[in-house]
Design a protein around this nucleic acid. Structure first.
Lengths: 339, 339
DNA sequence: CTGAAAGCGCTTACAG
DNA sequence: CTGAAAGCGCTTACAG
């Protein structure tokens, strides 16, 4: 394998010093325009690429961001919540637009991720993605701050959780759902989704939903983690109960709603004729279910951009603050309100 | 921000030389076990991490793999074929298991990706993922080989395409579908999916399907690229035609089948009672459609492992060869054959 | 088993 | 505008 060309090789060919080559390739205005062009041409001919390791070592930054995905530990090994995959896509694009590379890693909460990337100078900052119990890693977040690591977290801003976060306005999303269903005459509701402290996103959605209900409306709440199976099980409990079915079932996540729809379908219960169903997230599948799922969209494109943008601010020691992104109701067939 | 500890800092604290620190941290047997322990303890206390840039520069390898995702240029900006996202997950895990980091990038076919990663020493090798016209980048692949870049490609092995590839046994997958449907009495088929040279995967699936058909069976073929819309359009053409509907519709990809199902549903045509539908890929959605979709599974976990494993072999200058991974029929409701 | 020294390929003050 | 020199933080022959 032929020796890869270095800046010194180019210097020889161009008849200038190695420092001038470096300057020319970095488009420094200090270098005479003709020299610059010449050097750049030779570099192009040789397929020369700056050695990032050397460059990063010298510059003390990597132009790389590390994305840590926390998988829901309950999910099947081969599956990742489609919502996070959509986020991954948008983060990748946002990084590319800013000239940053993206290192991706799946992490479990136990491992030593706080050190692995930024401390080793492989990345200038971290993005944390994944729902779940932020308390489990609150300690690590605190430690990260102390080490002045640059971190941006996706999720609900939580008072006790240190660090900046970017998240969706879950409360207003929940409100939109309530308002929409009420205006179409629904009064008896079931909300499916955990609302314990481990699920701050679901808490927000529930809170928004409940506070927006009118006095004459009633509701019950059933626990379910963010999986199809949990949704199916909750729907089953609903059907087994003594009480008649509610008018509308509001699910804290689309993936739960998918399980609910499947269970209702099996039982021969028509959606939306006999009961309306609404989800949250607007994952790709939501448009494809039968009936298609009314849900709340989180703008993943904007989310990825905001995360990257704020992380870069932090890296450059600029002030940043929490952001809430708007949540938009997407009306489809499953709520029976489509024109 | 406090200066990050270096090996020299540890050397001072441990009272040994910097070279010994380096050796100890790399668990070299050359270092006295007591010294090794001591150094490692001090390093742990300081949260010391080896500077990857320096280490990589010196070692001339990065322990990093770059994954280049070629998006289907026809797909919506925010969507990525769920199949590739599943692959991403499995590749990520496989890399982690081997102690490699993964750099992810979305590339369009025009850009200068062949140089960006390995030439700049950011990655030791590349994985190419994405269907589409391999001819469009065959030239680049050739160039990569000449530069001795280490590349592994996901997709059908193609005679004219240089370089090693790992792919699914599309032909045998197509055969399984034909065999299954025939044995359940279906005789009149439609195959939906492009079979031009731009879609070698689809070609393989079609080829397997057709060659396995019995003499009394008939079939037509309709073009469709790998999107839901294209599937919907093809189904519409089928229904608009003068001929009666076939017994069974075989789709070259699940995402096409999802579009077909939606269109049939809208037209009031019952699946599988009036027509059977089969897909290919076993994306997550396939289990969730109504009716659930019979399809062929590509083992993404194994695929990711094989890709990474072979790439590492190539990086270490070991011989590698093309691999075909088995394709497994998954029988669900949409073919009407479920027990 | 350990240390002093070289060198990976850059970037960037410093001097001219 | 250009060059000679230092140095980023490691790893690894080399010498002992």
């Amino acid at each position: 394998m032929k020796h890869k060309p270095t800046s010194l090789d180019i210097a020889h060919l161009a008849g200038v010093s190695q420092s001038t080559v470096s300057r020319a390739l970095n488009d420094s205005p200090l270098v005479n325009i003709a020299t610059r062009k010449k050097v750049q041409e030779i570099a192009a001919q040789l397929n020369y690429q700056v050695d990032k390791n050397a460059s990063n070592l010298r510059r003390q930054r990597s132009n790389t961001i590390a994305l840590l995905l926390f998988e829901d530990p309950t999910s099947d090994d081969s599956l990742v919540n489609p919502f996070f995959l959509a986020m991954l896509g948008s983060i990748t694009r946002a990084c590319a637009a800013k000239g940053y590379d993206l290192l991706v890693s799946f992490q479990d909460l136990d491992s030593n991720w706080q050190a692995q990337y930024e401390d080793s100078h492989k990345a200038d900052g971290l993005i944390l993605l994944g729902y779940g119990d932020y308390r489990a890693y609150a300690g690590k977040l605190t430690q990260l701050r102390q080490q002045h690591t640059h971190v941006m977290r996706w999720g609900a801003p939580v008072a006790e959780s240190p660090g900046i976060s970017i998240g969706c306005d879950n409360v207003s999303g929940g409100q939109s759902i309530a308002a929409h269903l009420l205006s179409h005459g629904y009064r008896r509701f079931a909300f499916i989704g955990d609302i314990g402290d481990k699920a701050p996103e679901f808490q927000g959605r529930y809170e928004g939903f409940v506070t927006r209900l009118s006095p004459e409306a009633t509701h019950i709440q059933l626990d379910a983690i963010s999986t199809q199976d949990a949704g199916a099980a909750a729907a089953q409990r609903l059907m087994n109960g003594a009480a008649p079915l509610p008018d509308a079932i509001v699910c804290a996540a689309d993936i739960i709603a998918v399980g609910v729809l499947a269970t209702l379908h099996k039982a021969g219960i028509k959606v939306p004729d006999q009961v309306a169903v609404v989800g949250f997230d607007n994952i790709q599948v939501a448009a494809l279910t039968t009936p298609s799922l009314t849900t709340v969209q989180q703008n993943t494109n904007q989310a990825g951009e905001k995360l990257v943008e704020n992380l870069l601010l932090a890296i450059n020691e600029q002030p940043t603050k929490d952001h809430l992104l708007p949540a938009t109701l997407i009306v489809r067939q499953s709520c029976g309100c489509q024109v």
